[in-house]
Simulated assay, not measured.
Amino acid sequence: MRAVSARALAVLARPALLLLPLAVVACGAEPELAPKSGTPTSASTAPGQAINLGPEQNRVRAEKVAAIAAQVPAAVAEDGKLSVGFNGEGAPPLVFPATDNTTLIGAETDLAQLVADVLGLEFAPQTTSWENLFLATKSGKYEVVFNNVTVTEERKDTYDFATYRIDQLGWQVPAGSPIKAIAAPADIAGLRVSVGSGTNQEKVLLDWDKQNRAAGLKPVEILYYQKYGDVLLALKSGRVQAYFGPNPAIAYNIAVSGDSRLVGTASGAGPSLQGLIAAMTKKDNGLVKPLNEALNTVIENGRYKEVLDRWGLAGEAIPESRINPPGLPRQAE
């Protein structure tokens, strides 16, 4: 859930249009935007979808629905704005800086804009680190977060969730890696693996490592990096043999760089449950119901589909938004 630095993104992502192969990001992670040639006019020679990387996004918009807007808690509606938290470093195609190195763009920002429209509020994006998204939401500083947050049973103790995408994770390895597939715990025994700290994929990885140790297999060596760009460098140098993260951004990176491969995907909630990505708000603050109804409104009127199609994420669509569904199981003590 972290990505290449904003400064690098601004340098690499010119001109402001990039061709994204339509089928490439059917599932979720974190990318580098420029092809190896350094001429980012297209991500691939295959026919693709032009992605606007500039600050002027001409976002898909929705109409206010008075009956839903009336349900917004007074404390939220008072200033006429919806304060939405994002990880400022970003992860294309989910959320990342535009070519001005300032404006946040991506599927998550577009969906947040739609929800704000339906609620009759001004979209007010806020940026911070991944870890601080949770603290700022708990304190009420951010009214909602749209940042590839997976529903987990532990998080439901503190936050309310309104779902809007399925959660798929991916395994990324260097293009020349001997690793052909990662589908089960034994496939990562003894490997050097990078994963984001505090993420649901870290929980899945730790569970797999625990199973391996119980079976007498070699433990995983886990390496943590703050930025996805550092992960990519570690993969290239051989310091890391595999990266486990959200699949959309991994697939996006593979499409535009060509120097790594996807060798497996997994549900963000583990083998027995399809993980779900959701808008996150402070528990019992009264906002989750209007968020849920706003999401279902844009799902029904087609604006939701327009956004996912725009960013190549049609494969992560859900038929309806749900409030606090079953999430990633609690970690065993």
Rank of each mutant, 00 (worst) to 15 (best):
G229I: 01
G275I: 07
Q241H: 09
Q172S: 14
Q331Y: 03
G196L: 15
L328K: 10
R330I: 13
V231H: 05
A266W: 08
L135W: 05
L313T: 12
D259Q: 08
W130K: 07
P73V: 04
G216F: 05
E153Q: 13
A266G: 05
A23C: 00
A269W: 08
K283W: 02
A43Y: 01
Q274R: 13
L205D: 10
F134S: 11
V220Y: 05
G245H: 12
K218W: 00
D259H: 12
V4D: 13
V72L: 03
A8F: 05
A13V: 00
V307G: 05
G196K: 15
S37L: 02
G106E: 02
T137L: 00
P271E: 13
V144D: 10
A62D: 06
V288Q: 07
L135P: 00
G264N: 13
G54Q: 09
S177W: 06
L133K: 01
V11M: 08
A162N: 13
N132Y: 12
S44K: 00
S194C: 14
Q71S: 01
P21I: 00
I182R: 11
V4S: 11
A75W: 01
V65E: 06
R330W: 13
R14V: 03
T281S: 12
T102E: 12
A175Y: 06
F134K: 05
E78A: 15
V144C: 05
S44D: 15
I277N: 12
R261Y: 10
A16R: 09
L308F: 07
G238E: 07
R303H: 11
F86N: 12
G258R: 07
K203C: 01
Q57C: 01
A181P: 09
T103W: 01
A23I: 00
Y304Q: 08
A184E: 15
V149G: 02
R14G: 03
D79S: 05
A34E: 00
N148E: 14
G245S: 15
Q113D: 06
Q57D: 06
V65Q: 07
A77H: 02
N247G: 11
N285C: 10
T102D: 10
F123T: 04
W171D: 08
V72G: 06
F86L: 13
L205V: 12
G229R: 03
G238T: 10
V145K: 07
E32S: 02
A183Y: 07
L232Y: 12
V151M: 04
A183F: 02
E153L: 11
P174E: 14
G315T: 10
F244K: 09
K210N: 13
I299N: 11
G327I: 11
K305G: 15
P290D: 03
P40F: 00
P246L: 13
R261S: 11
A186T: 14
